[in-house]
């Protein structure tokens, strides 16, 4: 057992898979020599060499096109898109090509690509370097989508994503990079499509993702002081989605909340709310409540950004008010 930062866990997880599979390669901007602009790929060039860890030009379409073409001809690839906002400049390859080629060709091709990308707010980078865009990916048939919240899950879900034969978009949260936690020794492999129950409780269910998980946990501590036992579920994988974990929790608690970093409209929580309303309606003791960033571009100033993203305070107050 060693303590690793979330940042270190990214390179640790990639290295675990590159040692296991000598065919696995990676490419992206500044990932090799510089070790990544977020230092999430430090050491990989030294261990695996320039043939397997390649710097690219600022050409997101070229990066993901190369990843797709290599993957469909037998070479699994990890591709980095530096900021998840930049997916917009190569979206054709993600949404139209990688996601749909298997279906459109009657199952002739597999696309074993992991698109790693730095996601989320809290770094005061403004509206084009701070977005939570997991919903862009979630709505496209043919893409799998994961967003770990802990160093151990970074390693385990990276392994699951790399070993999956379908395209997986892997969201690394910028504001979690410095967080540290124990990571078990030896190989760690999680399953895509499994949520994690991170805190048990009997009074309400709160589903959260990535940076919102520690904030929901902090809120749960305060709610406990008020006699409210909140159950926290780290969704981890949006596609495939572990609906049974959510529905069984709601069957126990009777209340359902989502905490989403994304702007309001069409957030993943809306889909979860719909599923809970459809299939868990008779277990509900009150309305489903979504806690989200307002439907605005994210502002850069510290004071304004802090007002936008859901905080432990906002989660606590919202639950407190609606549980009365």
């Amino acid at each position: 057992m060693a303590e690793l930062s979330y940042r270190e866990a990214v390179a640790h997880g990639i290295a675990q898979e590159m040692r296991r599979d000598p065919q696995l390669v990676m490419l992206g901007e500044d990932i090799a020599s510089a070790g990544g602009v977020f230092k999430t790929t430090v050491g990989l060039l030294d261990e695996f060499g320039p043939g397997r860890v390649r710097d690219t030009p600022i050409s997101e379409q070229a990066i993901l096109g190369a990843a797709m073409g290599a993957a469909m001809t037998g070479i699994p690839v990890i591709a980095e898109i530096m900021f998840s906002d930049f997916l917009a400049v190569c979206w054709d390859i993600v949404a139209n090509q990688m996601a749909k080629s298997r279906y459109m060709t009657g199952g002739q091709v597999n696309i074993p690509v992991v698109i790693r990308t730095a996601n989320g707010g809290g770094s005061r980078f403004g509206a084009q370097h701070s977005q939570s865009v997991e919903n862009w990916c979630m709505m496209i048939p043919g893409l799998k989508v994961v967003a770990p919240s802990t160093p151990a899950d970074v390693v385990g879900l990276m392994a699951a994503a790399v070993r999956d034969p379908d395209p997986v978009v892997f969201f690394e949260h910028k504001s979690l990079l410095a967080t540290k936690a124990e990571v078990p020794d030896g190989e760690i492999v999680e399953q895509l499509g499994e949520a994690r129950l991170v805190r048990e409780g009997s009074d309400c269910t709160i589903a959260a993702l990535a940076l919102m998980v520690p904030r929901a946990l902090e809120a749960a501590d305060r709610l406990a002081g008020d006699g409210i036992a909140a159950e926290i579920i780290d969704v981890r994988s949006l596609v495939p989605l572990d609906t049974q974990a959510l529905l069984s929790s709601v069957a126990k608690t009777g209340r359902f909340y989502t905490v989403e970093e994304n702007p309001r409209l069409c957030g993943w929580g809306a889909e979860l709310a719909s599923i809970v309303a459809d299939e868990g309606f008779w277990n509900l003791d009150g309305p489903v409540v979504r806690i989200t960033t307002p439907h605005i571009p994210l502002p850069s100033a510290e004071a304004l950004e802090d007002m936008s993203l859901p905080t432990a305070d906002r989660i606590y107050e919202t639950v407190r008010k609606t549980m009365d």
Binding site: A66, M68, G69, M72, D92, I93, Q97, V109
Partner: peptide
């Protein structure tokens, strides 16, 4: 598309497939 014949696809939104062809070449 016919992977068995090396025909790796017809791409109906032009451009992407040049980048994807690079990937097949990289793989080779």
């Amino acid at each position: 598309t016919s992977v068995d014949h090396g025909m790796m696809g017809s791409y109906a939104i032009i451009g992407a497939h040049l980048c994807i062809a690079n990937g097949a070449a990289w793989s080779a």
